[in-house]
Simulated assay, not measured.
Amino acid sequence: MIRTILYLTVVLLCGNVYAQDYSYFTKTIRTFYTSAAEAEKQYDLLVSKEQIPFAIGDSVAFLYRGEANSVAWMGDFNGWGYDKNFHNKGTRIPNTNIWILKTSFPADARLDYKIVVNESTWLLDPVNTHQQWSGVGGGSPNSELRMPRWAADPVTEPMEGIQRGKIQKDILINSALLGYQVTYSIYTPPGFNPAQRTIYPIIYITDGYEYMHEQMGNMPVILDNLIHLKKIKPVIAVFIDHREPVNRSNNRRMQELAMNSGYLAFITTELIPKIEKQYMVSIDPKDRAILGTSMGGLTAAYFAFSRPNLFGLAGIQSPAFWFKPEIYTLCENPEKPPVKIFMTTGTINDTREGAEKMKTLLNKNTCTYQFREVNQGHSWGNWRDLTDDILIYFFPAN
């Protein structure tokens, strides 16, 4: 009885908070329609407080000021234009050049977006300081909507006064199997000393350039922090670059990561032996991980279920299982399920449907796994936020 009373009290209190939030949101938006002068004043006030987009509770108003015939917002919330059911067109506030789009998202959502003016000019939000370099391949920023209950994970930012690992970048390997050159980078943990002959676990990472990039995956910083906090044991990481070494604009990921048996052979018979010859790393599958996002998530599942004798750990982020549906057949009845899988997906125009289908198969074949969903889209903000969870699951400190 006491527990029931406490539960009802919490529900009522939370409901009251949401009611107050929505009341404040409605009052603020109403001000824009009082007069043109009040609209300009309210807009400037929100800009000064860095509150555009204006988000309270689960409600949000996108705002843009500028002369235009039309203004729309494109982003994770409408699949960057693919989801036609989401109303993304703004309306002009009368007698002003201020445009508004009101909508709602989960209170802990984080989403990428851009503004589209006159159906042709794509802009970063000029009054939003939050940006996220995004999309697989990255290279340019999006504006970032941070709903009130979303908060950045501190472990994704550099910690002061700690030892840092070292990165040897752009190591070249000539692949006889692929018939071309591949580059990769190696992260060695703080205190690494080959003379000590310490044996380290190892993780291989597809889309390694993006996972390394400080504006995208920022994974070396996450590794440094987790090792310092003693949340994971020291680990060596291999960041595989899919860009052609002499022409970085040519990214081969769509070929290499599409359940490509030739690429799997390159990794297992050329790259891994080279790494294991040069570094004291464990050869036990339970200490060897493969990690990737989107097409790389598809590849992580493909590698682990094809070669469980090599990869006992598979980090699968926002997997593009739709690209090769035969992955489900491969994973449905494995001879020996991988030891551990950590799979993640966003809930907003990401890969939730395919991930849920794979989750059903993992239950069926008795895999040991963790599954996480977050209210985000197909974005490096999503994947970076969950990298620490994967690493802690794979390499917990003793």
Rank of each mutant, 00 (worst) to 15 (best):
E214R: 13
Y279W: 04
V238T: 00
F239D: 03
E276G: 08
I227H: 07
Y263L: 05
D207W: 11
P245H: 07
S282Q: 11
P220R: 09
F239R: 02
P273C: 10
E256M: 12
G208T: 05
G262P: 02
L229F: 10
R252I: 06
R248K: 15
Y279N: 09
P245S: 12
Q278M: 08
P201Q: 12
I267P: 00
L271Y: 02
E276K: 11
R248I: 13
M219V: 11
L229E: 15
R253T: 03
E210V: 13
Y279S: 05
K274N: 00
M254G: 11
E276L: 01
I227N: 04
I275E: 01
Y279D: 08
I203A: 15
I236R: 04
S282M: 08
G262K: 14
T269H: 12
N225S: 11
G217I: 09
G262D: 15
E214Q: 13
Q278I: 00
D207A: 13
I272Y: 06
M219R: 06
N247Q: 15
L264E: 12
Y209R: 15
H242G: 05
Q255Y: 13
I222C: 05
P201C: 14
M216N: 10
E210W: 14
Y211Q: 11
V238I: 14
Y209A: 15
P234D: 05
G217V: 11
